[in-house]
Simulated assay, not measured.
Amino acid sequence: MDFYAVGIELLKGIGFFFLHPLFYLLLLFTLFLGYKRVQRERNDFHTRVYDIVDDLLVPLFPSLLAGLLLSSFIIGFGIVIPIGVMVLSAIVHVVIMLTGQARLLSPAYTGGLTLLIALVLPEVTTGLAMVDRWISEIHTVHLGGLALLISLLMITEAFLILKNGSKQTSPQLLKSKRGKTIGVHEAKRIWILPIFFLLPAGPILTTEYWPLLNIEFSQLGVLAIPFAIGFQQVIRSTLPIHAIINNGKKVLLVGVIVLALSVLSLYISMLIPIVAIAAIIGRETVATLLKLREDKEVNMYTQRENGLVILGVIPRSPAEKMKVNVGEVVTKVNGIRVTSPQQFYEALQHNSAFCKLEIIDSQGEIRFAQTALYDGEHYQIGLLFVQLEQLPQENVI
């Protein structure tokens, strides 16, 4: 094996990733979502909770790791995706981004739509040599490989949700149908994965046992292509981590089912459209069931008679240093019982140099948290509660 030639091919593939327009469109879309989040947080709490750049940094390492692991499976399985299919996938990504919905960037939707369009796309000529070649490539590749890719991306999505989806969820104020102000947490994330693909460029030998390589090309190159995995979930009845892990497990189950169908589709071509439909319907069913469950449960982040439910903790604040957690209930501040944000800050002023909180934790047990306070501490001590201000009508749920 010529390791030098392999290294050159890998460098070319990585270079193509940074030249791909979709990569920069995904970056801009992620920053746009971060900007809208910060605007909302300032409107609700008069302060941002997380920086805009955190929307890029938090998913960065998990995205790179997931992309490399998925690439090893794709190359190991011999999945060959021609440029025409990649271009079609990029177009689907862009159209979905125009909706502004992060959740629709799930590979169940982007991959499922790409596969369905590839199946029904007529073999037409446009007069443009490059476009005609892309369309021709879509009709020469075994689309079972694309079906298998969708299932692997969905399983990757599930693991990203489980391991990274609950990081830095954003607190938010909404108005319930009964007109009551409630708090929720929103998880919204875009993972941009660099995925390496074998690129056909001439005849490779046909294999009877693995139909993915049953195409007429003579050599393979390597390209790194940006793929997005979008995730969005609103939680109001429990701690974010519990709801998000539940979501991830359900997505994993759907991904495994789609994987089984995609493996069968490698040998039974009529199952290929079933893979796309199962992916889309399965992912949408998970989202719908989780939303219906949230609607039925009691709101966790509301004002209570026995204290204040912590809706958010600002990073690098005294509250974070005290290891105060979302969902815990503050009952006393400096020995004074509190039941409203106004009472909380009034009690805080009784000792401007020190803060002692009596808290009921997630296990229902009382614990104490305390810290010294200094002039210029960020946003008081950094706790966010459900406020009583009138909310705009668009926040009605």
Rank of each mutant, 00 (worst) to 15 (best):
S72I: 15
V94G: 10
Q390W: 02
K356C: 12
L153D: 02
S237D: 01
E305I: 11
L212E: 01
I75L: 15
D51P: 13
N306K: 13
F227S: 03
P392I: 11
T169Y: 06
A353S: 13
L162N: 10
G67V: 09
L70W: 00
L27K: 13
L68A: 15
V396E: 14
Q172V: 09
A276M: 09
L19P: 08
C355W: 08
L383N: 10
E365P: 01
Q233D: 03
Q219C: 00
D2S: 01
T140M: 07
I314Q: 09
L143G: 12
I52T: 13
V6M: 02
T339W: 12
P200R: 07
P171V: 07
E41S: 06
V222C: 03
L252V: 05
L205I: 12
G335H: 07
N299G: 08
V275K: 03
R178D: 12
M154W: 03
R133N: 13
G382I: 10
L69V: 15
A319F: 15
T110P: 00
G78T: 03
A5F: 10
F231L: 09
L152I: 03
F196I: 08
K356Q: 14
E123T: 14
T302Q: 02
R40V: 11
V131M: 13
W191K: 07
V258R: 10
T206E: 15
E328R: 05
L311H: 08
F3H: 01
Y35C: 03
R293C: 00
E305L: 15
L10A: 02
F16P: 13
L261A: 05
L128I: 14
L213M: 14
G84M: 06
K296C: 00
G76R: 11
K321Q: 02
I117Q: 01
L70E: 02
L259A: 10
V256P: 11
E297N: 07
G84L: 06
L152H: 06
Q303N: 13
I245N: 11
R337E: 15
G221R: 12
G84D: 03
N43W: 11
L373E: 10
L113K: 01
F368R: 06
V53P: 05
F217G: 07
I229T: 09
S265N: 04
K249D: 03
Y345L: 09
L239W: 00
S269D: 13
L105E: 01
L391H: 11
P194Y: 10
L65G: 01
P171I: 11
I150P: 00
V124S: 15
I75M: 13
M322P: 10
L27N: 10
T288R: 12
V53I: 15
S340Y: 00
I360W: 04
V141T: 04
A278T: 09
W210K: 03
L68Q: 05
V6G: 01
D55N: 08
E123C: 12
L264S: 14
S218A: 14
T114Q: 06
M300T: 00
T206Q: 15
I81Y: 04
F3K: 05
I52C: 02
A66L: 11
Y209V: 14
S317E: 06
S269I: 08
L28S: 13
E328C: 11
V131E: 12
G7E: 00
A276P: 12
L28F: 15
M322Y: 09
G183V: 10
M300G: 01
M322E: 09
R37A: 14
V234W: 01
E365H: 10
V258W: 14
